[in-house]
């Protein structure tokens, strides 16, 4: 064992950015291009890029690169751009604590470290709500996952978690999941939506026809059935009629919730959406900290992607990468002014 590993190696920087997704990289690039050199991007995964890394389909990057890219292509471009500017991206590094005045506790495979940052930008993004937190009745069998897990499995590892799933939800990400299924040779049995109309607006909601999967509106899961692996789900409609769909998995899509537990475990305050409370500049309750991207619910109506959503059906907003990119840049500019 490295004898230094248990000592706290302390480092310092002007700005530490937590998360190397579109928001974090955009902020880093903005800061660097403005002449700020001592910045560090901290990423807990082995690779930078964030969620687009495993969204193997277009459209990504139109705003940033005037080109339609797949997620992985877009992530790669972002990383290349950052590295070309000499930005330090520290992967496999986990922030374990947000301390007062920008003191970050880090875990790395080489040992524990402390990083003192003048300013910290938290850009840890968002994730879908798992089945458990939705209190779905039934067996706790294998074959149940979120889109994030599905896409990571398909695009990063070439594996599939099921062959004939039921897809729950009709948000943008649900259709992204349909595209992923098609690419991977997965044949969804049905797509179900609790409301009477899909969350996304025409023409996207016809896309399920492309994949020969039926869309059941006004239906929700009544019960998951399966001993070791899912083998059916019961769905129930608004009249209380129950029908059984044979399937080998369930994909819970959407219902995004901020990846904010680090914030919640810290001295920073949170709002009713579990996002850090921020002022108009994106500054948290400790002025050393800023938050940007999908971690916070963008109050800007444009941020809600309402071009995609049927009126009144917009779920908790998840912002497409282009908006995160812009937001990262804007908050970075606010940070620059504060330094």
């Amino acid at each position: 064992m490295n004898k230094h590993s248990e000592n706290n190696n302390t480092d310092s920087c002007d700005v530490a950015i937590i998360g190397a997704g579109p928001t974090g990289l955009s902020a880093a690039i903005t800061l660097k291009e403005a002449g700020l050199h001592n910045i560090i991007v901290i990423e807990r995964e082995a690779e930078a890029g964030g969620v687009p890394r495993h969204c193997g389909h277009p459209p990504f990057g139109f705003k940033e690169y005037k080109k339609i890219l797949t997620g992985p292509q877009y992530a790669k471009k972002n990383i290349e751009r950052a590295l070309k500017l000499g930005i330090k991206i520290q992967c496999k590094t986990t922030v374990t604590k947000l301390g007062e005045n920008g003191e970050l506790s880090l875990a790395t495979p080489e040992g524990l470290k402390t990083l003192n940052a003048k300013k910290v930008l938290i850009a840890t993004g968002t994730r879908e709500t798992p089945r458990s937190a939705q209190f779905v009745t039934g067996d706790r069998a294998l074959g149940i996952c979120n889109t994030g897990a599905l896409q990571a499995m398909v695009y990063l590892k070439g594996k599939i978690p099921f062959k004939r799933p039921v897809i729950v939800g009709t948000e943008i990400v649900s259709f992204s999941a349909l595209l992923t299924c098609r690419k991977a040779g997965i044949k969804p049995v049905a797509m179900i939506e609790e409301n009477d109309k899909p969350s996304v607006r025409w023409p996207i909601h016809y896309s399920h026809y492309l994949f020969a999967s039926k869309l059941l509106l006004g239906n929700k899961i009544n019960k998951v059935i399966g001993d070791k692996r899912v083998n059916a789900v019961e769905v129930i409609n608004k009249n209380g009629d129950i029908s059984t769909l044979e399937c080998d998995g369930i994909l819970f899509t959407g219902k995004f919730t901020p990846e904010s537990s680090l914030v919640q475990m810290s001295h920073l305050t949170i709002d009713e959406n579990f996002s850090p409370t921020v002022n108009a500049l994106g500054q948290c309750s400790d002025p050393s900290y800023y938050a940007a991207g999908n971690l916070i619910q963008l109050s800007n109506e444009e941020g809600r992607n309402n071009i995609f959503y049927a009126k009144g059906n917009a779920p908790q907003a998840v912002n497409v990468s282009g908006l995160c990119w812009e937001h990262g840049r804007d908050i970075a500019n606010n940070i620059l002014k504060s330094l």
């Binding site: 995964e45 495993h54 994730r127 879908e128 798992p130 089945r131 458990s132 937190a133 996952c145 979120n146 994030g148 897990a149 990571a152 499995m153 990063l156 590892k157 594996k159 978690p161 990846e259 537990s261």
Partner: peptide, 14 residues
């Protein structure tokens, strides 16, 4: 934990 495999299922499967 909180994500119930959202982030790590693919790696864990491997």
């Amino acid at each position: 934990g909180r994500c119930q495999g959202f982030y790590c299922s693919a790696r864990l499967d491997e």
